[in-house]
Design a protein around this nucleic acid. Sequence first.
DNA 1: CAGCGTATGTTTACGCCGTATACGTACACC
DNA 2: GGTGTACGTATACGGCGTAAACATACGCTG
Lengths: 244, 244
Amino acid sequence: MAGERPEARSGDPRTAGPARRAADRGRYGRLSRARVLASALELVDREGLSALSMRRLGAELGVEAMALYRYAEGKDALLDGLVEALYLELEERLAGQAEASSWRAELQRVARATYEVCLAHPQAVPLLTTRMLAVPLARRPLAVLRNHERVLTLLTGAGFDDAAVVGLFRAFNSWLIGYVSEELRPMVDNPDEEEPAFRLGLHRMPAHELPVLRGVAAALAERGGTEGLATGLDALLDRLAATG
Amino acid sequence: MAGERPEARSGDPRTAGPARRAADRGRYGRLSRARVLASALELVDREGLSALSMRRLGAELGVEAMALYRYAEGKDALLDGLVEALYLELEERLAGQAEASSWRAELQRVARATYEVCLAHPQAVPLLTTRMLAVPLARRPLAVLRNHERVLTLLTGAGFDDAAVVGLFRAFNSWLIGYVSEELRPMVDNPDEEEPAFRLGLHRMPAHELPVLRGVAAALAERGGTEGLATGLDALLDRLAATG
DNA sequence: CAGCGTATGTTTACGCCGTATACGTACACC
DNA sequence: GGTGTACGTATACGGCGTAAACATACGCTG
């Protein structure tokens, strides 16, 4: 650390001669797609999606914005890269665990791991829906497709016919993304407030028009957690495995 | 129609005198929040979310961008307004139908109507997840809160205790938004292509690494439709109504 | 009808954004 | 040691959201 030039762009250009060797470019050496994506994800985790701009990310890496275009074709591709990064993290997490013995248990394991990755990067989760709605199947990041392959293999391996596999696959994905999205909806309006009702900002809602919502709002603010996730998934798999 | 000035900003300002009466502002008379939101939604439906900018929407209404700030506090508020518009459309649709007799059937009716509204505005659907993740409960648009109230009322009216109500409510929302999101994922890569495999762009995927996905891709491209929606919802409600 | 406050839309300007294009420059290889 | 190339820089353009100051026509008061 101490030996590294802390800010590659500092110093008077008139006296510094060749200000930096090429390998010094970027705050800690050469760029790479992995470094760009890791830095982008970290930035999003720290400051939210809206803080992610090419210029800002460049600054984060000690580099001009245009340098990033060697590693992502544009901003959209960068966002797809973030999605890919999340799925790579999912693959790592799954690889670090023992596979379950039944297809049901294995799907539960995948679901749980996905949930955990999403909760670890809540600010990035919106990308899972928005980019998926922007990119056709065949252009999804490879890690996403590998995840699809994993789930589909599990289902066909369990002996379901094509129609059932498709139904189960869709239900699995739907429930997963829906559950996570619902789980991450912010409930607290004013974190500094002690009183639960004020914390939730209930005084902002038209009182008499929404009596039931007011009543259960506090309970709604709790999370369903992985139990809720597992319960719903179980219900769906039961039904569709029987029908299909 | 014929009597209205087709383009309020046209004409030579040096000869036109007071170029327009105040009531002529905007392409068809005064602005209003409803008109702004309707125009925004139409623009999004027509050209996608990325086409929606303050300037562009202003032009659409025959008005400068800043004029819109009288009807929405900023771009984010405008997007929340779009979410509200979708829920208002849902309310209309529900009001135009007979209520179902059981709480189960009524939830199915609400789910189906929501699905239909979403499929009518596919380009706007990402807002349902992104804005929901950006806005705490108490600040959601009123129409959204009314929708929550409707569902919660249905559930408490059916006699469930608070814990069960919350579980069912969350499962309902999760499944709904997840199913719609999954349903709207684009599958076709090249609409001009005849051959199904090429249409899907399967040649872009690493063949040997994703054999199962390749095999079911065509089936995956079909939609689950309202049947799939109803089936999954039924499974969830069954399980959670029994457990809760 | 006269005058005025207010509601409504315009103008101008600022800093940020994504990105096309042209350009240096240090490295790897012969 | 010279050269091609991979990598990052520099500059520029049009569009974005929006703050602030401004113009104007309506509706109310007398």
